[in-house]
């Protein structure tokens, strides 16, 4: 217990470790804030017209579909249409009808909208009378946040790994690792202390992040806690591996970056592509995949999958722990 207090003390003095702990929480707060930014304008149509080219009622009709901006000259209008970050559709009067202009590099949906606009204008009397039944959608941003929130949570869980790796590497650099070898402490005690520190901070960071991002029922919260606990434990163990393998801080940072990239990329790519079959089983080798899958299943209310993922994470915990103990024992045998 006393050893653990010392470990905690050394971690709390380390600004880098504290920063890694706070980072996912900051991102979670930022994501919640992002939810309040109006991103619905992204899919909206934007129209550009020439000043005094279209009658006011046509402009009012266009404004039903999206914002209309008037430009003074043809060159300004063309430049706005060509501007790659927007999807402005140029609209000009063409006798009784309209003529549209696009850049040609827009997504298909905008090209189609530009092609259909003159015909929509001609049929406007008919369409304005049609009955429209609008159903409530739970959350427009759900699909956008649905993938980001589990990703942030994965990063939070992963923080235990960064914690441990940085902690061990700095111990190596400061020479504390040598002192550890002559301290009256068994390797298993050392492993436990290190794992507990990484695990505690990783879990704490993830729980705070989860509380900010999710509104969960008590039963779901229990499953989420299990997912967080198990993945933080695996991450803390991986941190020990990185600490053991890296010789210097810079190599350690590179290892952490690579592993973090794999941890985030594999589940996101899997969920975007919709991997199934043997490949999906192979992907479970990366511990973040069952964690991500579990969180997604939990937010979709699919308990069975979440419990299956907890099982996979338990297997991960046991395997990584055994592997680490075996490697440490072998190294110990070699040195004595």
């Amino acid at each position: 217990m006393k050893g653990l207090t010392y470990q905690l003390k050394s971690v709390l003095r380390d600004k880098f470790c504290l920063m890694t702990f706070l980072l996912p929480i900051l991102v979670a707060v930022a994501l919640n804030f992002m939810g309040s930014i109006d991103l619905s304008s992204l899919g909206e149509l934007h129209f550009g017209v020439l000043e005094n080219n279209l009658p006011p009622q046509t402009i009012t009709w266009l404004e039903r579909y999206g914002p209309v901006t008037a430009y003074g000259t043809q060159e300004e209008l063309t430049a706005a249409i060509k501007e790659p970050s927007t999807n402005v559709i140029g609209v000009k009067a063409d006798a009784d009808s309209l003529k549209t202009a696009i850049s040609g590099d827009e997504l298909e949906i905008f090209q189609q909208a530009a092609a259909a606009l003159p015909a929509l204008y001609e049929q406007r009397a008919g369409t304005e009378q049609a009955k429209v039944l609008t159903l409530e959608r739970p959350d427009i941003l759900e699909s956008f946040q649905g993938i980001f929130i589990p990703a942030v949570l994965i990063v939070a869980m992963f923080m235990g790994c960064t914690f441990n790796a940085m902690n061990i590497i700095s111990e190596k650099e400061d020479g504390v690792a040598f002192i550890n070898e002559i301290l009256p402490m068994t390797p298993s005690q050392y492993i436990m202390q290190k794992v507990v520190v990484g695990f505690l901070f990783g879990s704490l960071s993830s729980v705070v992040t989860a509380c900010i991002c999710f509104q969960l029922s008590w039963q779901n919260f229990g499953i989420m806690l299990a997912l967080i606990g198990l993945s933080s434990f695996v991450a803390a163990l991986i941190g020990l591996f990185i600490g053991k393998l890296s010789e210097g801080l810079m190599i350690g940072v590179v290892y952490i970056k690579i592993i973090m990239l794999v941890f985030i990329a594999v589940p996101i790519v899997c969920s975007l592509i919709g991997v199934s079959g043997p490949l999906a089983i192979i992907c479970n080798i990366v511990p973040s995949q069952p964690a991500f899958d579990g969180i997604m299943a939990l937010s979709a209310g699919n308990m069975g999958t979440a419990i299956k993922d907890i099982g996979i994470l338990i297997i991960h915990c046991v395997t990584w722990f055994t592997l680490y103990v075996l490697i440490s024992a072998r190294r110990k045998k070699r040195t004595t």
């Binding site: 249409i81 060509k82 559709i89 696009i102 850049s103 015909a119």
Partner: peptide, 9 residues
């Protein structure tokens, strides 16, 4: 089929 949009880019 109305008039096809003019491509400026």
């Amino acid at each position: 089929t109305g008039s096809a949009p003019e491509i400026v880019g």
